[in-house]
């Protein structure tokens, strides 16, 4: 069977399978990314807190999660939640190991890791804010929430876009690791295909091409967003 037939949409083709798996990769990455955004903004808020223990927790979170392998975090989440589920199952008479839902645990693991990176991005964006402009807003009588909504948020968002783009690329590539806990995304689907056709090179090469396509397209998207957001900023001559 030649390559085009193998990856085609014919009766023996793996096209639909790979396409569905691509959708799964994007879905799990997106969920993880959003969870990470929530954790990252909470972490950044904690890092700027006046309350020392909150700052310490935020610092610990971002240092630890950026210092250990993502794969280890995925194992922790999968086996951790599985053992909780198994323990609960045992109470109701179920026996043995019950696996946790791979999508949920995978998205959570990616979320917790990317949150540590997004926290750094948000922190940097807030630190980059021009102090004088915030002072001007205060001098014009803006209460804190209005100031945050009208001046800080739009500017910080602008400074955060490039970093957020980098974290998204990271998350997309990280999502491949979820294949180890059985979620059928691009990588797992390729393993299945490689196993049953004995054509591993064709499948993994296709997987690589699919990732490249997603990272390329979303990279373009982020660059467009950056250009739109950077209106009003003097470009280097």
């Amino acid at each position: 069977m030649d390559y085009l037939q193998l990856m085609g949409f014919g009766p023996n083709g793996w096209g639909y399978g790979m396409l569905a798996a691509t959708g799964m990769t994007v879905a799990v990455a997106l969920c993880g990314y959003l969870i990470g955004s929530v954790l990252g903004s909470l972490g950044a808020a904690a890092a700027f807190s006046r309350f020392m223990p909150l700052r310490a927790i935020a610092g610990f979170y971002t240092t630890v999660l950026r210092g250990i392998p993502d794969l280890l975090v995925i194992y922790l989440f999968y086996f951790g939640s599985s053992s909780v589920i198994s323990a609960v199952g045992a109470l109701f008479g179920a026996e043995g190991f019950v696996g946790a839902p791979a999508f949920l645990t995978g998205a959570m693991a990616i979320g917790v890791v990317s949150g540590a990176y997004q926290m750094q991005v948000f922190r940097g964006a807030v630190l980059a804010l021009p102090k004088g402009e915030i002072e001007a807003a205060r001098a014009y009588g803006m209460p804190s929430f209005l100031l945050f909504r009208r001046i800080i948020l739009p500017q910080a968002a602008r400074f955060a876009i490039p970093g957020m783009g980098n974290v998204w690329q990271l998350v997309l590539k990280e999502s491949a690791l979820i294949s180890v806990i059985g979620l059928v995304e691009i990588m797992r689907q390729s393993q299945i295909g490689a196993g049953s056709t004995r054509q591993p090179f064709s499948f993994y090469l296709t997987a690589g091409a699919l990732y490249l396509l997603i990272t390329f397209v979303s990279g373009r998207g982020f660059r467009l967003a950056e250009r739109r957001a950077m209106r009003g900023v003097r470009r280097a001559a």
Binding site: L172, K173, E174, S175, A176, L177, S179, M187, S190, Q191, A194, P200, F201, F203, Y204, L205, A207, G208, Y211, L212, T215
Partner: peptide, 13 residues
């Protein structure tokens, strides 16, 4: 592309 893809291409592929 993910490092995992690169490892798999070399080792299995």
């Amino acid at each position: 592309t993910p490092l995992l893809v690169q490892i798999y291409i070399i080792y299995y592929g």
